[in-house]
């Protein structure tokens, strides 16, 4: 948990770094550099992006795992609510049945 918080913090810093490294002004400076400087800048850009992807995946995977841990409660909730809905509809069924039976009894009584 603490490691993930640290990764998340580093990820935020890498996000800021990659935005700065891809700024058109930075790119223009890189284009004006020597071949060696350009190659070094390109390698660093790719390394920062690689680290961003690795850390981003770790942070997001941790979030996904924690969401999944919570999932059982919601599946139980869905089951419980579905059952409750059936019970609620049963009240209708019971009253409907009572009504039908009473109507039949009413007809029989009238005939007598």
């Amino acid at each position: 948990m603490e490691m993930i918080a640290l990764y998340s913090k580093i990820l935020s810093q890498l996000n800021e770094t990659i935005v700065a490294m891809t700024e058109p002004a930075f790119d223009a400076l890189m284009q004006a550099g020597t071949v060696d400087q350009r190659q070094r800048a390109a390698r660093e850009l790719l390394d920062v992006q690689h680290a961003r992807l690795v850390l981003g995946n770790m942070v997001l995977a941790d979030i996904a795992a924690r969401l999944k841990e919570n999932e059982k409660a919601f599946l139980d909730g869905i089951e419980s609510l579905d059952e409750a809905l059936e019970r609620l509809e049963d009240i209708e069924a019971i009253l409907g049945t009572v009504s039908t039976v009473l109507k039949i009894v009413g007809r029989v009584v009238t005939l007598l």
Binding site: I18, T22, D27, M30, V35, R38, Q39, A41, A42, R43, L45, L46, Q49
Partner: peptide, 8 residues
């Protein structure tokens, strides 16, 4: 990023 860095 890959396109930007490719040439170098």
């Amino acid at each position: 990023i890959l396109i930007s860095a490719r040439a170098n």
